[in-house]
Simulated assay, not measured.
Amino acid sequence: MKAAVCTSLDGYESLEIMDVDIPTPKANQVLIRVQASALNFADSLIVKGKYQVKPPLPFSPGLECAGVIEQVGSDVTNFKVGDRVMAILDWGGFAEYAVAAEHDVFPIADNLDFTTAAAIPVAYGTSHHGLRMKAGLKKGETLVVHGAAGGVGLTAVEIGKRVGATVIATAGGAEKLAICKEHGADHLIDYRDGGVREKIKELTDGLGAHVAYDPVGGDLFTETLRSTRQDGRILVVGFASGDIPQIPANIMMVKNITCIGYHWGAYRTLDPDSLRTSFAELMGWIEDGSLKPHVSMTFGLDNIKEAYAALVGRKSTGKVVVTL
């Protein structure tokens, strides 16, 4: 099969398109004929050896995919050959075939195309589970989303609106803010103009937001901490800025703020049932049209370096998907 292969931890520029063996599923796994696989920020880290998962070289990156089940392991009971599915992967999505554990595989409706389905598991899974089950976002609350035009941020905007929250989106530039508005954001802040803290306060009558969703870190986290209301919650999702902030405990104490460290992927083993509950509601929203995943760019496997460049260079909004 054809696959994008990482042979050294020198970043995406060193990826090679190679012919490799089709993987064999274990007893609890399925083999998926991949139709599409989406890029995530973590994919830029894993090829540098900087992600928490460190596959042995050589390997194919790719943490999620959609396709058709080609083979099932002897212990698999919920799927059969021919089922249309999306899956969460440890790695291996940028290839014509991938293996996934049964508990990481989810059925998709017949009317959901594979490109859209591939964009769902990681980004939508992260935002839905995080906002609903970790941060406890409720109807009528105010949600701030940083990096709101990105692959994860835009899903948080959509889910926040679907829950019934007032959503304040921060992003860099008018074009990205327009995407946030299109996907439901009530208020827009261009962080490049500065004054994020003051603008959030102004939009919330001086009280601050109930919940903040932060995949960016750095200076924006500091702005967030100081513009979250008493008894608010901050969901720490990632550090796309490259700057990991240190949290002043005194501010947390005085304002009764809860800072929630959140690594969604850990729930695949910590509490897989909670992911199934999350995906059940999420897929219901997608199937009834309440959520419409945004894929801004697609690339063929042979152009995977260009796909990475678009993601890392922040040229994309929503999701970047590689089609096979």
Rank of each mutant, 00 (worst) to 15 (best):
C6W: 06
C6E: 09
I17V: 14
P23D: 04
K26H: 11
R33V: 03
A38F: 07
N40P: 10
F41A: 15
A42W: 01
S44A: 15
K48C: 03
K54S: 01
P58R: 10
E64Y: 13
E64I: 08
E64T: 10
D75N: 12
R84M: 06
I88D: 05
V99S: 02
A101R: 14
D104G: 14
V105Y: 11
F106C: 02
P121R: 13
Y124R: 09
G125T: 14
G125V: 13
H128G: 08
E141S: 12
V145R: 13
G150I: 08
G150W: 13
G150D: 12
G153D: 09
L154Q: 11
A171M: 07
G173D: 13
E175D: 15
K176S: 06
A178K: 09
K181N: 08
G184C: 11
D186K: 06
D190V: 13
Y191S: 10
G194Q: 06
I200K: 03
K201A: 09
L203N: 03
T204G: 04
A212H: 12
D214F: 11
S227E: 04
R229E: 13
F239N: 07
G242A: 03
N250H: 11
I260F: 02
G261Q: 05
G261W: 01
Y267H: 14
R268G: 06
S274D: 02
A280G: 00
A280F: 10
T298G: 05
G300A: 04
L301T: 08
L301D: 04
N303P: 04
R314T: 11
K319E: 06
T323Y: 01
